[in-house]
C-alpha cells in the first residue's frame, strides 16, 4: 500500500506532491487514524497564502478505518463537512519535520516556512472573525488626493490644468472642454462650457448636491464671468481638491480652508457655480 500526499501551500505554482513508500505510508496512517471519541470541527480550506493543509490519498484499498482521500489540518482529518481528531495531533509536524518524508523533497527554507504555517494555522484557526473596516470610504470610486504626482514643477504640472485634474485625465495639453470632440466652447459662460464638457462625455448632475455617484466621480464647474472656467473634483475621502491652471494641485480654497463643498468654498473670482458633473472613468475624451 502507498499514499500520495500533497502539501497545499502554493499560489502560483503547483503544490508539491509525492507518493510515499509502504513503511512511511503505514506510519503516517497509524498517526492519522481517528482518535477515539474526539470529534473535531470541519473548517474547510482557509483562503490563506502559505500552508493550508495536507491532502492524503490512499492508493489502493483504504486502511486504518480512514476514507480513501482526506485533508489533514490542525491535527484533524476532514472529509467534506465531517472532521475527526487524529491519534497523533502533531502528524502534520511529523510529515514536514526533520525526520519526515518531505526532508529530501523540499528545500530547508521552505520546510521552515511550512512548519511556521502549520503552527500559525493551529494558533489562529480559520475561519477568522471578520474585521469591520474602521473607516468607511466616503467616495470609493473617486480618485485619491495625490498632489505630489501632479506637482512635479515640470511637464505634468505645467501641461495639465483644472480640467485635466478634475477629470483625473492627464493629456499634457492644457485640456479644453469640447476640444477632444472637435468643438470647443464658444464663450466663457456656464452653459457653453457645460455643453462642451457634455460633448467630452461628462454627465451633467445638477442635483448631485455634493453626493458621490455610485460609479465614476463628482466634479464641479465654476465660472469667472466672461474670462475663465475652473473645475474641482471630489476625492475618495469626500473632500474636494483642484489644480488652478499650471500651478500646484491643492485641497485648500482661497481662504486657506479645506474644501467640503465647492458651492460654499472661497473661489476668488470664480463667482458663478454652474453645476456638478460625473466623470465616468474610461468614457471621457479630452484633448
Amino acid at each position: 500500500m502507498a499514499i500520495r500526499i500533497t502539501i497545499d501551500m502554493f499560489s502560483g505554482r503547483p503544490n508539491p506532491s509525492l507518493v510515499l513508500g509502504e513503511d512511511e505510508s503505514r506510519e503516517i496512517l497509524a498517526r492519522v487514524k481517528p482518535k477515539k471519541g474526539k470529534r473535531a470541527k470541519a473548517t474547510g480550506t482557509p483562503p490563506l497564502l502559505g500552508y493550508r493543509g495536507i491532502d492524503v490519498e490512499q492508493l489502493g484499498k483504504p486502511r486504518q478505518g480512514l476514507p480513501g482521500s482526506f485533508r489533514l489540518a490542525r491535527g484533524a482529518f476532514q472529509v467534506g463537512d465531517a472532521a475527526h481528531a487524529t491519534t497523533d495531533e502533531r502528524v502534520e509536524d511529523f510529515i514536514c519535520g526533520s525526520t519526515g518524508p518531505l526532508r529530501f523533497v523540499l528545500p530547508a527554507p521552505l520546510l521552515d516556512e511550512l512548519r511556521l504555517g502549520i503552527d500559525q494555522l493551529r494558533r489562529y484557526p480559520w475561519p477568522w472573525k471578520p474585521i469591520k473596516p474602521y473607516l468607511k470610504l466616503a467616495c470609493a470610486c473617486a480618485p485619491l488626493y495625490e498632489p505630489s504626482w501632479w506637482n512635479d514643477s515640470g511637464p505634468i504640472q505645467g501641461g495639465n490644468n483644472c480640467y485635466n485634474y478634475g477629470t483625473n485625465y492627464r493629456t499634457d495639453t492644457f485640456a479644453q472642454p469640447g476640444r477632444g470632440t472637435g468643438m470647443i466652447y464658444g464663450a466663457i459662460t456656464g452653459p457653453e462650457v457645460l455643453a462642451a464638457a457634455i460633448r467630452d462625455a461628462l454627465v451633467d448632475k445638477p442635483g448631485a448636491n455634493n453626493k458621490c455617484p455610485k460609479e465614476g466621480h463628482l466634479v464641479a464647474l465654476v465660472i469667472a464671468p466672461g474670462y475663465d472656467f475652473h473645475w474641482y473634483r471630489k476625492g475618495r475621502n469626500g473632500r474636494w481638491s483642484h489644480k488652478p491652471g499650471g500651478t500646484q494641485a491643492t485641497n485648500l480654497d482661497n481662504s486657506g480652508n479645506l474644501i467640503t463643498d465647492p458651492r460654499t468654498a472661497d473661489r476668488g473670482p470664480y463667482t458663478e457655480f454652474t453645476t456638478f458633473m460625473v466623470v465616468m472613468h474610461g468614457h471621457i475624451k479630452l484633448k
Partner: peptide, 9 residues
C-alpha cells in the same frame, strides 16, 4: 500674467 485656471495664461 498668472491669472487663469482653465485657459492658458
Amino acid at each position: 500674467v498668472m491669472l487663469f485656471s482653465g485657459r492658458r495664461d
